[in-house]
Each structure stands twice: as structure tokens, then as C-alpha cells.
Design a protein around this nucleic acid. Structure first.
Length: 600
RNA sequence: GCCCCCGUAGCUCAGUUGGACAGAGCAGCGGUUUCCUAAACCGCGUGCCGCAGGUUCGAUUCCUGCCGGGGGUACCA
């Protein structure tokens, strides 16, 4: 990120002021600490209350260095800043207790920010942080022959948004769906299908029927241990390429993918690559051989393992006692494969926190192999692997579990949300033409937003009334605000002029809106830094909130202070602001993977 | 037992390079519209920031211990 020019100017001016006020200390300290603009720049923070200024420098910690008390320091330095190259500048510096607060000239900020947005359009907020870097994002990764349930909602939505966020910051972002299409579970499916499924018509609702078989298997296996042995055997057969097992597996896979794609399409989720665990089958032997040559493989209790040399980590299993591989084998193999293919700057695994230990194991094993093979440190990649974990999606009091048959199908959630949105439209805007398309946008917007409304580490309880809520901090609130902005622009009916008079936007409400617009690029960077679209989502809520307050502000006589009035210059300025907000909300929603309706 | 995450208003959550009076949404009560889309906006909130110590000029924020909730802990993923 380029340095903020206002902050840079502040840092420069204040550093000089410090030198001027405390020449003795400056003599001793040289260009250290407060006498160094870079130091000041790095120590700036944002005041809690925007009325105190755009940014601030707390001076408490300099008391000792300067031999003065904080309020006195602030006062003297603020005073010296005024007469020290500050005249005619755009940053005003004031002392407040132990803080030096900086105000940026309002109309300048308004003009610059709005013009940036008007000229840049949806490119506003673009950055080159990721120039030349590839960000590989694995997300969704649903399991074949299992339902696409709300348990997979979070990874799908978080990953989809993260990919867009990284792309916006200049990364080459690659979205990858790594299907769970291999493993012992398919042994279970095969056994179950052979016992109870031969007669089923799988031309419709195939996944639902397969899931029933899976649930039945687990239920009967509780009392019939032999079933699990049969399942392990069936999976081993599958790995050995036994034709009838492979044929069944392929059938389950094809049927599942067809259903998943329907859901992805509806949600607007896209991938650059859809692959799966099975694609690694022919690479695992090579991987194990490589580990063996590096001296990392040992045998334990009949299984093939990598001892991770860490008392807190169990060994990574390469092969079970029966010779079959595990997902750890495949993930380790996959990590090397991904690196060979993409040479990524970072590879994100957007997977629930339950698998934290698993990924620690895989990443650790990868690092051990690189070290054992003597890969030069600069060419290693294990440290580039990053598990972006997130909390449970809980349903009522119970965990969701496919095995227990405790499932909420994502499609059911979507349909419910759409139906509810439809009712709401009929009630609120019965004349809306594109009612079906709009209801879909809104219903899905609500569901999607619900997954990004809190920081990803939190468990989220899946409550129908919250996911399907259209009021308050929700997706539809953002969409509604966007529709309202579009409506204003339609009513205005003319082109938005870039030569508006920014001085007419000096009101309190307008300033809050402009600040939120100015801070948008920073919110995107925060989201990327924390691997969490939440930061963009919450900033959108903030922007919509300050705009709506501006929109409904009343004059002293108690009337709405309308944006479109009979004062041409005022209207022009306000419409420029409206357009800027509309552009930013539209772009913010796009980053979240949520559609922005023009009417609703 | 050990490891990880969490513990802020009735509920769901912000507040995280330590800083200026701890903030939103929901729920509740009361308002705002001769309609620039009211899916909105305004007003009404003293909460042991889980508890106890410590570091600091300053701790919801960092450290230690404890309590409570969740997850994980080699042949499922």
C-alpha cells in the first residue's frame, strides 16, 4: 500500500515540531523515535470517535524520553506544528489530553475520495500488494455421495469471497475445489449399496438416497461390527482397482457432482479447478517412496507412519495396517503436487477447525521432507501452507452429522430463504417486475451474509430466524441500501458530474459517509490479512449505516433533508456522494459474493 | 492427561500492532412517512468486559494460574 499522504505530511510536520520543542533531547537521540517521521507514521492510530480527527498520535509513552508530561507535550508540539510549515497544509493538528489529533481538510478529502471512486469505478480499492504472487485457495471441498449441507456452507462462502478479495489486491487468485471423493467412506457406500441399494432409482435425488444408505450403514454398524470390516475391504478393493467397485464409485461421483454444480450455480460460486482426492491416487506411491528415501518413514502397529518428532503431534499415517491410504497421505501428496503446479505464494485450506491437528501434521511432514531433502530454504514451501480454520456451524443444540442423519440440506435453506424473500417483496414492493430473480438474490444474499457476519473463528449457531432475517445487520439490509442508492440515481436521471462542489458536503452525516468510503480499501486489506471476509462485510454495514442516516437526516423544521432538491449545486454534490456510495457497496457486495439488486 | 479455539448488554456479536467515556444488531417500549424504496431512521442500556494475580503512565486487549463451554487427541474425513 502506498503511504497515506495525509499521514505522511502529519508525520513530517510533527517530527519537525518535536525537534523544535525538545532540541536538547533531539541532540542526544538523533533521528530516533518521535524525531523520525517514519516512527510517527507507524504509531498513528485511529480515534474511537471520528469527531476527534482522522488519525492521532498518543504521546504518553514519550513522557520519559522528553522529560515532560503528556498533555504538555501534546500542547507544545501542536503549537509548534502550526507555525512550522503547517500553514496552507491540509492537515490540522490539535492537542487533546495526551493525544495529538489530526484533522484532514474536509472538503479536500471529500473531493479526492469521491473523485477516486467516480473515475475508478469498481476498481476503487484495487491494490498491487499481490503483484506477481499466486494465492491458491482451496474451499468447499464437499464429499461425494454426501449431502451438500449447511456444514459446507461456510467453507464455500468464505473461500469464494477470499479468492475475490485476494484478486482485488492484485494476486493471481486460484480457486480450487478439492472434492472428498476417496477414502474408507466409499467402502461403506459400496457395501451399503450392494446390500440395500440395488433397486433404487438414482435418476432423481440421487444424493439424498445415497445418504440414506450411508446413515443406515452407520446405524447397523453399531450392532454389527462385521460391516466395518467389509467396508474397509471394499475400499481396499477400490484402491486396488477392482472393476465393480470402481464402477460404483464412478457412478456415485458423477451423480454427486451433477447435484453440487446445481447448488454452486445458484449461489454464484465458481472455481478455477475442480479436482479431488482420487486424482492423487497415482502419486501417492511416489510420495511415500520419497519420504522413505529421506528416511522419514517407519512402521508402527502395522501401519506406515511419519514420526513428526513432536510430543504434541501424533504421527502422520501414510498407510493403514491393511495397506490402504488415508486422507493425510493424500493431503501431503497434494501439497507437493500443488506446489509443483502453481509455485504459490500461499496456499490456503479453508477447512473447519476440527481438522487443525491434521493440517499441522501435514504441514510439519512437508517441512520435514524439505529439510531432509536439503531443499534450499528460499525454495521451500511448507511455510506457505496455511489452514484458514473456522468454527462449527451448529444446528440447534446438536452438531450436524451426516453419519447420524442430522442434516440440513443447503438447497432447502436456499428455497426457504427465497420463498420468504418473495413474500417480503409482495408485501413491500408489489409492483416489482422481476420478482423471482430478485427474491433469489435476496434470499441467497441473506444466507451468504450470515456466514460472514462474525469472525471466522467463532462457532455459529444456525438459527433459521437469523439466517432468514432481512433486517438489521444482514445481507438484505446492504442490498436494500444499494437499491435505494440506485433509485436515487434513477430519479436524478442525469449523469453524475465530477466537478461537484465538495464544500457542500461539510455536514456531519456527509463526513461520516466520506470517511467510510475512504476507509474501504483498508477494510479489504484487513480482510486479506486476517483471511476473513468479515472485515469487508462489517465495513459494508458501517457504510450503509452512515449513508442511511445521511439519507434520512432531518432539517431543523423536522423535514427530511432531501438529497434531490431544487438547489442544483447542492443536488449535484450530494448525488456525486450517492454515486460513490453505490459504487462501493456494489463492489463490497461483489467481494462477498452477494448480488446487488437495483430494485427490490 | 495434553493441544487448539472461545468466554464482552436478555440473545447474537464488534471492539486484536495496549490508549481518550466499552459499541452495534436482535428482542422490548416510544417516535418518524402528504411517500427522493419505512427491508429504513430517531430515542430509551451503569454491562463484576468469566475469576484472581502480574507487566505498564494506561489492560476488554499482553503474561501466568484457575473456572466454564466447544473441538482435537494414529489406522473416518
Amino acid at each position: 500500500m502506498a503511504k497515506d499522504k495525509y499521514k505522511a505530511q502529519f508525520a513530517h510536520t510533527v517530527a519537525q515540531a518535536f525537534q523544535h520543542v525538545y532540541p536538547g533531547v533531539h541532540e542526544e537521540a538523533g533521528d530516533q523515535q518521535v524525531f523520525n517521521p517514519d516512527f510517527i507514521y507507524d504509531n498513528l492510530e485511529k480515534p474511537k470517535d471520528p469527531k476527534m480527527g482522522r488519525f492521532a498520535l498518543p504521546v504518553f509513552r514519550f513522557g520519559k524520553l522528553l522529560g515532560d508530561n503528556p498533555p504538555s507535550i501534546a500542547n507544545k508540539v501542536a503549537g509548534a506544528s502550526q507555525g512550522n510549515g503547517a500553514k496552507g497544509d491540509l492537515v490540522r493538528i490539535e492537542a487533546a489530553g495526551g493525544f495529538l489529533n489530526a484533522r484532514v481538510d474536509e472538503s479536500t478529502l471529500a473531493r479526492e475520495t469521491i473523485n477516486d471512486i467516480l473515475t475508478g469505478g469498481n476498481r476503487y480499492g484495487d491494490a498491487d500488494l499481490g503483484a506477481g504472487k499466486t494465492e491458491l485457495v482451496e474451499y468447499s471441498s464437499v464429499n461425494i455421495a454426501k449431502p451438500f449441507g449447511i456444514g459446507h456452507l461456510r467453507t464455500t462462502i468464505l473461500g469464494n469471497s477470499l479468492k475475490k478479495i485476494f484478486a482485488k489486491l492484485g494476486y493471481t487468485a486460484v480457486g480450487m475445489n478439492y472434492l472428498g471423493d476417496w477414502g474408507t467412506q466409499f467402502g461403506k457406500m459400496i457395501v451399503a449399496y450392494r446390500m440395500w441399494g440395488q433397486e433404487l432409482d438414482l435418476s432423481e435425488n440421487a444424493v439424498e438416497k445415497l445418504v440414506k444408505l450411508y446413515v443406515r450403514f452407520h446405524k447397523e454398524a453399531e450392532t454389527n461390527e462385521a460391516l466395518n470390516d467389509q467396508a474397509r475391504k471394499a475400499f481396499k478393493d477400490l484402491e486396488d482397482g477392482e472393476p465393480s467397485a470402481v464402477a460404483l464409485w464412478q457412478q456415485f461421483k458423477d451423480l454427486s457432482i451433477a447435484e453440487f454444480m446445481r447448488v454452486y450455480k445458484r449461489l454464484g460460486i465458481e472455481f478455477d479447478l475442480i479436482t479431488g482426492e482420487a486424482a492423487l491416487n497415482d502419486k501417492m506411491d511416489g510420495m511415500i517412496e520419497r519420504l522413505r528415501r529421506a528416511g522419514l518413514v517407519s512402521e508402527s502397529q502395522g501401519a506406515l507412519i511419519v514420526d513428526l518428532q513432536d510430543p504434541q503431534l501424533p504421527p502422520l499415517l501414510l498407510k493403514k495396517a491393511d495397506g490402504a491410504t488415508l486422507y493425510s497421505t493424500r493431503d501431503l501428496t497434494g501439497a507437493f503436487w500443488r506446489w509443483e503446479k502453481w509455485r504459490f505464494s500461499e496456499c490456503l485450506y479453508v477447512v473447519a477447525t476440527q481438522q487443525a491437528d491434521h493440517f499441522r501434521q501435514v504441514f510439519r511432514a512437508a517441512a520435514m521432507l524439505e529439510e531432509a531433502e536439503g531443499v534450499p530454504p528460499a525454495e521451500r514451501f511448507a511455510h506457505r501452507l496455511n489452514h484458514v480454520d473456522f468454527g462449527w456451524v451448529r444446528f440447534g443444540d446438536e452438531k450436524l452429522s451426516t453419519r447420524a442423519g442430522n442434516i440440513v440440506f443447503l438447497e432447502d435453506v436456499i428455497y426457504k430463504a427465497m420463498a420468504l424473500a418473495r413474500e417480503k417483496i409482495k408485501e413491500k414492493n408489489p409492483n416489482l417486475a422481476a420478482i423471482d430473480a430478485t427474491a433469489e438474490m435476496i434470499g441467497i444474499g441473506a444466507v451468504m451474509y450470515s456466514q460472514m457476519s462474525v469472525r471466522r473463528q467463532k462457532d455459529v449457531a444456525f438459527h433459521w430466524d437469523e439466517v432468514l432475517s432481512f433486517e438489521g445487520e444482514t445481507g438484505p439490509y446492504l442490498q436494500y441500501t444499494h437499491a435505494r442508492l440506485c433509485s436515487l440515481l434513477r430519479n436524478y436521471g442525469k449523469d453524475v458530474s465530477p466537478s461537484f462542489d465538495a464544500a457542500l458536503l461539510a455536514g456531519e452525516e456527509e463526513q461520516r459517509v466520506i470517511e467510510a468510503l475512504t476507509d474501504f480499501p483498508e477494510a479489504i486489506v484487513d480482510a486479506a490479512r486476517n483471511y476473513d471476509p468479515f472485515y469487508v462485510a462489517s465495513h459494508m454495514i458501517k457504510l450503509a449505516g452512515v449513508f442511511n442516516r445521511f439519507y434520512q437526516r432531518k432539517t431543523e423544521e423536522g423535514r427530511i433533508d432531501k438529497i434531490i432538491s431544487d438547489d442544483p449545486a447542492l443536488t449535484e454534490a450530494r448525488i456525486a456522494l450517492v454515486r460513490a456510495v453505490q459504487v462501493v457497496i456494489n463492489e463490497g457486495l461483489r467481494l462477498l459474493g452477494i448480488q446487488a439488486p437495483e430494485e427490490m
